[in-house]
């Protein structure tokens, strides 16, 4: 099979970036110039491996014969994903997002990233990360806060933004905690506030909460870039603009920036130290992956250990503090402790 430029399609070299978050799975395929040739954004539905396998099939079906020269994974499921696809590079979300954004908006100074269950702020100066923070303790300033309230108001989350933009007088709603937000919201409803004012109020509450908690003590300077799943919400974007009195740039691929960053990092990594990619091939979609979690009761730590099986053969384990299970699968040198204890 020949492509338009006369090259064999199998010669089209691509890089795959995967971002498995708490709620969604993102896959991006780039060419050798870091252009996105394929992207996918899907709910994980608690089945990260299956979702990823299906996504890989979609890549093959859409792009045909391609040569995958590098794979990178990120997100909270990055190790699991890395194992399934055969990642050449595994990175945390902060680095992945920053790499993608600085590619898109080279002079960016502040990145707001709000996802399903976590949110981050990344401070960039002259193209490199100099500071960052992630939300702690609760998910108040994240997508699930909005999801929750949208459900309560019986308004599809997709329409949330349009509603918010209609508001002339946003209601003041406590955004620190979903529990207080709820009582505040109900109270405002009883008082007769218009739905759009309440929704706009919620958007402002989220942004206020985000800037005060995640952005606390950070030097927040323009140009601002807003990305992550929540960037789809026009109401939140508007609230940011209102509060920071500045334009907020939302990248075209705002939902898949982490995956895009990993594709770029994979290409960089392969260019820096040329080697054969560890990519498992698209056949991996047909393989049987199973995960099992057990409570290890060998010691009083009672770790919850996750074991991953490929075609019934254990290939990975994590969650064990002592490394005993990991060692069983992939032996490493451990340290011995001699001292007698009570």
């Amino acid at each position: 099979m020949e492509g338009e430029d006369g090259k064999e399609r199998g010669d089209v070299i691509v890089y795959i970036g995967v971002d498995i978050g708490s709620l969604t799975t993102k896959v991006v395929v780039t060419d050798e110039e870091d252009n996105i040739v394929f992207s996918l954004y899907e709910r994980t539905n608690g089945k990260p491996i299956e979702t990823l396998q299906k996504a890989l099939l979609k890549v093959r079906d859409t792009l045909g014969d391609i040569k995958v020269d590098g794979v990178g994974t990120t997100g909270s499921g990055r190790y699991l994903a890395g194992l399934v696809v055969g990642a050449d590079i595994i990175k945390n979300e902060i680095t992945a997002h920053a790499v993608a954004t600085t590619k898109d908006v080279p002079d960016v100074q502040t990145i707001f990233e709000i996802g399903g269950q976590d949110s981050k702020i990344i401070i960039v100066r002259q193209g490199i990360v100099v500071d960052f923070a992630m939300n702690t303790i609760c998910a108040a300033g994240t997508g699930s806060f909005l999801d929750h309230q949208a459900e309560r108001l019986n308004i599809p989350i997709e329409e949330f933004g349009d509603y918010a933009l209609k508001s002339k007088n946003p209601a003041r709603i406590a955004g620190r905690c979903t529990v207080f937000a709820e009582s505040d919201m109900i109270h405002k409803q009883q008082m007769g506030y218009a739905t759009e004012d309440i929704i706009a109020g919620l958007c402002e509450a989220l942004v206020r909460n985000y800037l005060n908690n995640v952005g606390r003590g950070k030097e927040i300077l323009p140009p601002y870039v807003f990305q992550g799943g929540v960037a789809a919400n026009k109401g939140i974007r508007h609230a940011f603009e209102k509060m920071l009195k500045s334009v907020i740039y939302v990248p075209k691929n705002y939902g898949v920036m982490g995956a895009y960053g990993m594709a770029i990092l994979a290409r960089n990594s392969m260019a820096e130290s040329p080697r054969e990619s560890k990519f498992s091939g698209f056949d991996v979609a047909e393989k049987q992956f199973k995960t099992r979690s057990i409570v290890c009761n060998i010691c009083p730590n009672l770790c919850e250990v996750v074991l991953v099986y490929e075609n019934n053969k254990p290939v990975a384990a994590w969650g064990d503090r002592c490394g005993r299970w990991q060692e069983k699968i992939r032996p490493r040198v451990g340290k011995q402790k001699k001292t007698e204890v009570a």
Binding site: N92, E93, M134
Partner: peptide, 20 residues
């Protein structure tokens, strides 16, 4: 997970600076 992500990102930040 939260701890590892933060440490990795912090370490990356320092390495990135050096690389640039």
């Amino acid at each position: 997970a939260g701890m590892v992500t933060r440490i990795e990102a912090f370490v990356d930040m320092i390495m990135w600076k050096e690389k640039m």
